[in-house]
Design a protein around this nucleic acid. Structure first.
Lengths: 204, 204
DNA sequence: TACTACCAACAGACTAGTTGGTATAAATTA
DNA sequence: TAATTTATACCAACTAGTCTGTTGGTAGTA
C-alpha cells in the first residue's frame, strides 16, 4: 500500500467547506484552498479532477453531516420524553443549543450558498441537494404526524408543510444572521417555531 | 444639457440585477453585463468607477423597490379591512399573489445572495442591507402590535420576533425554492405563516 | 537480504484563457 | 460646447486546469 491519500482529501474538503460557506464556492479559488490546506496544485488535482468534482464532494459531505446531526438529535430527543410533541420541542431546542455554540462566521447552509450562485444548475448537484432536503422533511413530517394523532390541531394542518416550515425557518434565520451579523436570530426564530407548534397542538 | 445618461445607468442596473440574482454577483462579470445591456466597457466605467460601485447601486435599488412593495401592499391591505389581524393576513396573501406570478428564476433576495458571497463584509453595504431589514421588520412589528392590543395572544409573543419570522420565512422559502426548483414553496410557507397568525390571535 | 519494478501521492512550474480596470481617440447628442 | 457613448486596444493579476517530474513506500523474486 502507498501513502494514505484520504487524509489529504479530507483536508481539502474541510478547507474548501469552510471557505465556500464563508465566501461562496465561486469566489473560492483552488489556489486559495491549496494555500490554506498547505498542499500543492498537483495534489489537489490528483484528488479532484475538476472543481466540479470538489463541489460534488462538498455537497456529499454536507448532506451526510447534516443528516447525521438531524438523526442524532431526533434520537436524543426521543429518549428525553415519551410525548411526541415534547420530543419535537426538545429537538428544536437541541438544534438551538447547537447553533448557540457557533460563531457568526460558521452559520450557513451550503445548499443555500450554492443555490444563490446557480451552482445547482448542474443536475447531479441539484438532485443531491433536493433529495437531502426531502429526506429531512420526511423525517420531521413523521414526527409531526405522530403529534397530530395525539393532539388534534387547532386548524387543519399538513405535516409536510409544517416540516417544510422548520427548514425554511432555519434557512431564513441563516440568511438573516449573515445579513445582520447577529447569530441570535437563529435562536429567536426557532423559538418562534416552537411557539407555533405549541399554539397549534397544546391543549387548553 | 447633455445626453441623459440615467437611462444607460438604469439599463446597467437592471441587467446586473437580473444576472446577479440568478447567478450571484461574483459570477457576474462586467463583460457579461455590458454584453446583455448592449453597451460598451467605456460606457460602463463612465457610470460605475468600479464593480463595487455597481454593487452599491444594486443594493440601493433592491432596498428601494422592495420597501416600496412592502408599503404598497400594506396600504392596500389596510384599505381592504379595518381589522388589523385581517389586514396582516390580507397583506401576506398579497405577497403570495405577487410571487405566484414570478417564474422560478426570478425568485430570490439580493441581500441573501450577497451575504452568501461575503459581499456584505464591506461595511457600507452591510449597513444598507441591515437597515433595510430593520425597517421592514419595524413596519410589520407595528401592525402586529395593533393586533396584540385587540386580540390577546394565546402565548406571550414578541411582535418584533413575529415580524422577524415573516422575513425569515420569506428568505427561507426563497432558498428552498431555489434548491428544489419549485416556486410553490413560497406559497406554502406563507400559508403556514398565516396559519401561525391565526392560531395565535384568532379567538375560539 | 538485496535487487528490481512498480505505484499512489504529491510537488510545482506552466498554459490558455478570463478578470476588473485603464487609455485614448472619435462619434453622437442635448 | 459639454456631457455622454462607442470602439478598440491594452494591462497586470488571477483563473482552472495540465504538464513533467519526484517521493516514499510496497511487492515480488532470488
Amino acid at each position: 500500500m502507498a501513502k494514505d491519500g484520504s487524509t489529504t482529501r479530507d483536508k481539502i474538503i474541510d478547507t474548501a467547506m469552510e471557505l465556500s460557506l464563508r465566501q461562496g464556492h465561486v469566489a473560492t479559488s483552488i489556489d486559495e484552498v491549496i494555500q490554506h490546506a498547505g498542499i500543492t496544485k498537483g495534489s489537489f488535482f490528483y484528488h479532484f479532477p475538476s472543481k466540479k468534482d470538489l463541489a460534488v464532494a462538498l455537497i456529499e459531505r454536507f448532506s451526510a453531516t447534516e443528516m447525521q446531526i438531524l438523526q442524532d438529535n431526533l434520537e436524543k430527543a426521543n429518549k428525553l420524553s415519551k410525548d411526541p410533541l415534547q420530543q419535537l420541542l426538545i429537538f428544536v431546542g437541541l438544534i438551538q443549543d447547537l447553533h448557540s455554540q457557533l460563531e457568526e462566521g460558521h452559520i450557513g447552509c451550503l445548499f443555500a450558498s450554492f443555490s444563490y450562485e446557480n451552482q445547482l444548475q448542474d443536475e447531479e448537484l441539484q438532485a443531491m441537494a433536493s433529495e437531502t432536503l426531502i429526506e429531512w422533511k420526511s423525517k420531521l413530517s413523521e414526527k409531526i404526524q405522530e403529534i397530530i394523532k395525539l393532539y388534534p390541531p387547532r386548524q387543519p394542518v399538513n405535516p409536510d408543510d409544517m416540516a417544510d416550515m422548520f427548514l425554511a425557518t432555519l434557512e431564513g434565520a441563516y440568511v438573516m444572521t449573515r445579513i445582520m451579523h447577529n447569530p441570535e436570530i437563529v435562536q429567536l426564530n426557532l423559538e418562534q417555531y416552537k411557539t407555533y407548534l405549541e399554539s397549534q397542538f397544546k391543549p387548553g
